[in-house]
Nucleic acid binder design. Structure first.
Length: 428
DNA sequence: TCTGGGGTCCTTTTGCCC
DNA sequence: TCTGGGGCAAAAGGACCC
C-alpha cells in the first residue's frame, strides 16, 4: 500500500467554518466504467469512448465526457449512441476491473471512517462526524479523498458535502466532473429551490410528468405546494417524502451495511425466443446462477419469483413462497419452472426471462426442518460439490447436463473449454 | 429511438381467516 | 346459513436508482 497514515491536512480552504455540521460526504466517481476501461487503453484518453454491451440490444454502461458532448449517456441504446457519435470507440465492459478499482476506492473511504455506505460500485456516502477532529474538516477530508483516489486508482471523483445525504448527492452531481462542493446548512433552501424537480432522488420520468401536469417544475414549486396535493397525486409515501426533501429535510442516516433483500439473475435474448425447451434451459441456468450466489454469500430465501418480458416489452412477474427458505438451485428451478408453466403460454415471443429469490435470511439463522424423504438434501450436497469444483476449476466446469447443450449462438463446446481446446487446469 | 442487469421500495389487488 | 368487513400476508405491477 502506497498510502501511509491519513493526512495531516493543511488549513481549510475557503471561508472558515462553512462546512461546520456538514458531515455527510457523497463521493461519486466520474464516468467510472469508462474511466477504468481507459486505464488499460491510455492511448484513448481524450477521445470519445463508449462502454457498453455488444449485441444488437445492448445499452450504454458509461461514456467519456468527450462522448457525452455528442448527447451519449448511460442507459441509452447502443444503436442510438453509435448513431449520435459514430467516431466513438466502443469497448466491452470489464467487470473484474471495475470491481477491483471499486474495492480500492472503498478502502480509501474506510481509512477515513467506518461509516461508509456504498450505493454501487462507483458511489458511496461517508459520515465523517467522528473523523473531523482527528483529520480536519469535511472539506479537507473531501479534498484528501479526491487526491488519494486519483493517485492510487488513476480515476477522478467528485465530492458533495452537506448535512444530509440527499443534498450531498445533489452537490456532487453539481460539481462534476472532478470537483468538490459544500452546501452549508444555511444555504440548503437557496441551493435546492431553483433545481428542476427531476433532480430530486426518486423523481423519474413518470413522476416528473405528473408534477408537470400540476404546474410544478422546480423544487421551489414543490416546496410551496400543500402536502395534501402531493399525497393525492403521488401517494402517501412519495408525496410526504418529496415535500420534506423540497425543504432539505432528510433524516436518513449513513448505514454501513444493509443486508440483501433479494438476489436474482435475468437475461435478454439477442433475438426473441419462442422455443419452450430453450426457455426452460435458460430458466435452469438462471436458477443455478442465483442459487450459487446465495450459497456463496451464506444466504437463502423463501420466495421464488420469475419475470417474463414479451416481444412488445410488456412484463409480468409471478412468485411463490416456499414453506422454507432454500439455496438449492434445483428447488429454485422447479419452482420457477412451475410458475412459468402455469402461465400457459402458447409459443409467445419472449424477450427476457429472469429468476429472483426474495425474503433472504442468513443460512445459519434458518431453522431447517427435516422433511419426509429429504430429497432436497441430496441436491444441496451435490450443488455444494459443484461449488467446490467451480472454485477449483473455474465457472462452468461442472453443470447440469441440460446446460451442456449449446444455446443458440453458442458453439457446441461447454464453457470452460476455451477456443484453443484447452481443458481447464487444476487449481491455482 | 427501441429500450441491460442488478437491485429497492411502494401501491394495489387478491385470497384467506375470523 | 349467508353476508360484510377488518386485518393480514402474499402476489403482482410498476417506478426508480445506478
Amino acid at each position: 500500500m502506497s498510502r501511509g497514515a491519513v493526512p495531516p491536512i493543511g488549513p481549510p480552504p475557503g471561508p472558515p467554518g462553512e462546512d461546520r455540521g456538514c458531515t455527510v460526504l457523497h463521493v461519486d466517481m466520474d464516468a467510472f466504467y469508462a474511466g477504468v476501461s481507459l486505464l488499460a487503453r491510455p492511448e484513448l484518453r481524450g477521445e470519445p469512448v463508449i462502454v457498453g454491451g455488444g449485441g444488437t440490444r445492448g445499452v450504454v454502461l458509461s461514456a467519456t465526457y468527450e462522448a457525452r458532448a455528442f448527447g451519449v449517456h448511460s442507459a441509452m441504446p447502443m444503436m442510438r449512441a453509435r448513431r449520435l457519435c459514430p467516431q466513438a470507440v466502443v469497448l466491452a465492459p470489464d467487470h473484474r476491473a471495475y470491481a477491483r478499482v471499486s474495492a480500492g476506492v472503498m478502502e480509501v473511504f474506510r481509512s477515513i471512517t467506518p461509516l461508509v455506505e456504498p450505493i454501487s460500485l462507483d458511489e458511496a456516502f461517508l459520515d465523517v462526524h467522528g473523523a473531523a477532529r482527528r483529520l480536519g474538516g469535511p472539506t479537507q477530508i473531501g479534498e484528501w479523498i479526491r487526491a488519494t483516489v486519483e493517485e492510487e486508482q488513476g480515476v477522478t471523483c467528485s465530492v458533495g458535502i452537506a448535512s444530509t445525504k440527499f443534498v450531498a448527492k445533489l452537490a456532487s452531481a453539481r460539481c462534476k466532473p472532478d470537483g468538490l462542493l459544500v452546501v452549508p446548512a444555511h444555504e440548503v433552501v437557496a441551493f435546492l429551490h431553483p433545481l428542476p424537480v427531476g433532480a430530486l432522488w426518486g423523481v423519474g420520468g413518470k413522476t416528473e410528468d405528473i408534477l408537470r401536469q400540476l404546474g410544478l417544475h422546480t423544487v421551489g414549486d414543490l416546496a410551496h405546494t400543500p402536502v395534501s396535493t402531493l399525497v393525492r397525486a403521488l401517494g402517501p409515501a412519495a408525496g410526504a417524502h418529496l415535500a420534506a426533501l423540497a425543504w432539505g429535510r432528510d433524516e436518513r442516516a449513513v448505514v454501513p451495511h444493509e443486508p440483501d433483500k433479494s438476489i436474482g439473475a435475468e437475461n435478454t435474448f439477442s433475438t426473441d425466443v419462442d422455443d419452450p425447451a430453450l426457455l426452460a434451459r435458460e430458466l435452469l441456468r438462471l436458477s443455478e446462477r442465483t442459487a450459487a450466489r446465495l450459497r456463496a454469500t451464506g444466504q437463502c430465501g423463501r420466495t421464488v419469483s420469475i419475470k417474463v418480458r414479451f416481444a412488445d416489452f410488456t412484463t409480468i412477474t409471478r412468485s411463490r413462497t416456499l414453506p422454507e427458505a432454500t439455496d438449492v438451485g434445483r428447488l429454485v428451478y422447479d419452482t420457477a419452472r412451475s410458475l412459468y408453466d402455469a402461465l400457459g403460454l402458447q409459443r409467445a415471443r419472449i424477450r427476457l426471462v429472469g429468476v429472483r429469490v426474495e425474503g433472504i435470511v442468513d443460512v445459519d439463522r434458518q431453522p431447517h426442518q427435516l422433511q419426509l424423504g429429504e430429497r432436497e438434501h441430496g441436491w444441496r450436497s451435490a450443488e455444494q460439490a459443484v461449488d467446490r469444483a467451480t472454485h477449483r476449476f473455474g465457472s462452468g466446469a461442472v453443470r447440469p447436463a441440460a446446460l451442456v447443450e449449446p444455446a443458440p449462438g453458442e458453439e457446441s463446446r461447454p464453457e470452460g473449454f476455451t477456443k484453443e481446446g484447452r481443458v481447464p487446469k487444476r487449481g491455482r
